[in-house]
Each structure stands twice: as C-alpha cells, then as structure tokens.
Amino acid sequence: MRRSPTDDIDGQILAELRQNARISLARLGERVLLSRNAVRQRIERLERDGFIRGYTIREAVDGDRPRVSAVMLVYRQDRMRGSEVIAGLRAIPEVVICDVVSGELDLVVRVEATDAGRIQQIWEQVSAFPGVRDITTALSLSTVIDRAST
C-alpha cells in the first residue's frame, strides 16, 4: 500500500516540486500559501518520511550525440541469492532503473547510453556476471511517453 502525504498542502508541494524542483522556497510558499520557513520544514519532513527520496538532474542531450535506450530482461540462476547481479548493475552508471519483478523474469533493467555500441558493451558485461542465466535486450526505437522528464 502506498502512503500518501499527510495533507493537501504536502500534495501541492510535491506537485510543484515535480514541475520544477529548483523552485525557490519563497516562490513555493507563495504558491501553497505558506511562509518560506513553513515550506522548508514541510520539505524536510517529506524527505525524512521518504516521500522525497532524492534529487536529480536530467541532462540536455547534445544534438550530435543522441541517447540510446534499451530494456534488458535479466534472468538469474538463483533469484534468492542473486544479489551479486544487482550489485554489479549498481556499478554501471548507464543503468538508470532496475526493478525486481515477479513471474519467470527476475530483473527489468533500463539502460541509457550514448550509442548502441555502449549498450552492447553493457550487455556483454552483464551477461558475464556470475549468476546471470540469460538476458533479452530490446532497443528503444522512440519514446512516446516520458513522464519522468516533465
């Protein structure tokens, strides 16, 4: 069950931060009708309670270097003792998401790299991890919905 923020103002703060995580506390306070200090305290509580788990940037892509995305479906030899595979994936900076999933499949891994050659290198690296039984890789042809970048 997913927890929700404690009140509507917390929900408004989270919505504003999703739109612009760099908004000033003063401007955010104006939008949610609270003082800058009250907004700061609420954000600190939302961080402490796990509603805000971190901050990140999404770099602009250089026009000469488009990014290539792929999804790797990773099957481990032993799902219960396959933590070394996850540790190996954590060490690859192009791995942007890794989900443990139910069913026959073990891991769904999203990779974003500068070119298809780098995706292949990552595939070779992951397939050599002890505990990896098989990998199915799908290169993304185009992205039609990307809510993470809005």
Rank of each mutant, 00 (worst) to 15 (best):
R76D: 10
R2Y: 13
Y75F: 13
G11Y: 14
I119P: 00
L107H: 03
E104F: 12
C98H: 07
A116H: 10
L46C: 08
D78Q: 11
S102L: 08
M80L: 13
V61L: 05
V108G: 07
E112G: 01
P130N: 07
A148Y: 15
V126N: 02
T56D: 10
D78G: 11
R2C: 15
L34P: 08
T136I: 13
D134R: 06
T114S: 14
G63T: 12
A138Y: 08
I23R: 08
Q125C: 00
Q41K: 10
D8I: 10
V61D: 04
D134L: 06
L139Q: 04
V101M: 02
P130E: 03
R48Q: 09
V111Q: 01
R36Y: 05
S102W: 05
R40A: 13
S24M: 04
S149K: 10
L139G: 01
Q19D: 10
R79C: 09
T6D: 15
D78E: 07
V109A: 03
R118K: 09
L14M: 05
D62E: 14
R147E: 09
E94W: 00
E30V: 08
I122Q: 01
P130K: 02
G103Y: 01
I52W: 05
S127R: 05
G63H: 14
G131A: 08
V108N: 11
E16S: 12
R40D: 12
D62T: 11
A148H: 12
D115M: 07
C98E: 08
Q19N: 11
L17P: 06
A138N: 10
V132R: 01
D64Q: 13
L25C: 09
R22T: 15
I145R: 05
E16P: 14
E16Q: 11
I52R: 02
D7G: 09
G88H: 03
T150F: 15
A113S: 02
M1S: 09
F129H: 00
V126I: 01
V96Y: 01
I57F: 12
R133N: 06
L25H: 09
A38K: 05
W123S: 09
I135W: 01
R81G: 12
L107A: 02
Q77P: 10
R27M: 12
R81V: 05
V85H: 00
G50C: 05
A60D: 15
L89H: 03
R42G: 06
I9T: 14
G88W: 02
P66G: 08
G63P: 15
L107I: 04
Q125E: 05
A70N: 02
R133F: 02
L73I: 14
I92E: 03
Y75C: 10
P66R: 07
P66Y: 04
N37K: 13
D8T: 14
M80Q: 15
E112D: 07
S149W: 09
T6S: 15
R67F: 06
T137H: 05
P66K: 06
R40E: 10
V32N: 07
D146C: 04
I97L: 12
A128Q: 02
A138H: 11
V74I: 06
G50N: 08
I13M: 04
V101Q: 03
I135Q: 03
E124S: 01
A60G: 14
L34F: 09
S142Y: 06
S4Y: 12
V109F: 02
D62W: 12
R42T: 07
R53M: 08
L14W: 06
